[in-house]
Design a protein around this nucleic acid. Structure first.
Lengths: 233, 233
DNA sequence: TTCAATATTTGTCGAAACGCAAATCAATAG
DNA sequence: CTATTGATTTGCGTTTCGACAAATATTGAA
């Protein structure tokens, strides 16, 4: 592990507003690690020994049910904290975290959480804001799952991924990490078969282009229409 | 409004661990109000002028979608805080709150939130714990909606209501506030028709007894079996 | 008591989406 | 280059559950 420079986290939202010298102090307690694609960073139920900041890459947060079903709760993008069980007063992780691509993340020992929130109220405020936002997000998704049909949910999920993490290409907006039909189905509570059928149909209509683990949105407007269509009207 | 006694909130979870004289101070800023059954306490999107503590009764928290669908996100029981938009850094309420029975609640001006969390770290800690717990709950429900069938979801919802707020009667455990088939359907993402059919079937099997806006669980074990049944096995 | 408003029950039909199966296609390791 | 593995596509039968409709029951108000 090489020495970490303060500029690494200076403009990352959770640490915004903290003085440079304090950032150096913070980094001195952190450990930097590389996680290759597919690697599990921590598992649901495991004791929450650390909390993390994603510096580069994308992380899949997956909840597993007792029946063995699983759902992708969210994707973490660079600059976001994850595995912050301490912020939720949990002593074990509530989900699995898996690297969706090769990733680089910082981690701090869980025991350091109290110290850092006490010492840097800005950080505390920022993280509670994050928790609040995730609560909103989870409740929205809950309602979405309860009230919308599969096509609408899948359209929403892809739309969101494209807007949040997509990169412009010649064809349109490409989701910037490998994502399978199975992944999409686990985000939306359906089967990979149904997702595949939907993507095929949309490809025929010129809304998306897709290949193995790649999805490009070619007509985001039409996709948005599908995402918001109320079938009652 | 009469004078409020410190014993009102002394043993209520969010305020636990705060000295009596401080409770008096806290109460001096609070307003007590009675809400008759069916009354809307605040509406989704409305500016969050106050936050609340439920002293007595049950509150329905309802999210409304742009399409006009709605979902009951949770029920609040006495002793719980609600409408705490400030804790989520929101400036408008994210849902409607409706009195499910006649209720009594305290409210404080939203502007007081900062003061109280600054002055009473115990309170701050307690509420963030609550927010964390609600995030867990929302994510669980999200996964539940994504992976379970209607019967299982309805069984879970009724089971939970009976365990959390039910009262023992001769017949079994009675859910202690009026709740319609429509309400259950809005908690579980189905229709009142389906809920009605399920309850009828369960009544024939001797699992529940129900009448207009009343549900009694007569065999909570069997209901728990339905709630946890994995149809794959 | 009677009426109106609300809640509940039940039947029938059909569409959405799942489960299963099998074929095809793409990527990667030898 | 080829074989193997994993991802995707597509077809088909089946199930779940929603939509619609109409009858019945309960409550509260006049």
């Amino acid at each position: 592990m090489s020495l970490l420079d303060a500029s690494l986290i200076a403009d990352v939202p959770p640490f915004r507003g903290i003085e440079r010298q304090n950032l150096v102090e913070l980094l001195s307690k952190a450990r930097s690690e590389r996680y290759e694609m597919g690697r599990t960073i921590f598992r649901q139920g495991e004791e929450a020994h650390s909390f993390f900041l994603l510096l580069d890459g994308h992380i899949r947060v997956v909840r597993v049910t007792p029946d063995g079903d699983q759902m992708i709760a969210r994707y973490i993008s660079s600059g976001e904290l994850f595995g912050i069980a301490q912020a939720l007063s949990l002593d074990s992780y509530p989900a699995n975290a898996v690297a969706a691509v090769d990733c680089i993340a910082l981690s701090w020992p869980g025991s350091y959480w109290q110290t850092i929130t006490d010492r840097y109220p800005t950080f505390a405020t920022n993280t509670y804001k994050t928790v609040g936002a995730r609560l909103q997000e989870a409740q929205n998704k809950m309602v979405e799952m309860a009230t919308e049909r599969v096509e609408q949910r899948v359209a929403k999920a892809i739309s969101k991924l494209a807007n949040q993490t997509g990169q412009k290409t010649d064809d349109g907006i490409l989701i910037s990490f490998p994502i399978s039909r199975q992944d999409i189905s686990e985000m939306t509570g359906t089967t990979l078969h149904t997702v595949s059928r939907l993507l095929s149909a949309w490809e025929n209509k010129g809304i998306v282009k897709s290949s193995r683990k790649k999805i490009t949105v070619t007509d985001s407007h039409q996709l948005a229409v599908l995402a918001s269509r109320d079938l009652h009207n």
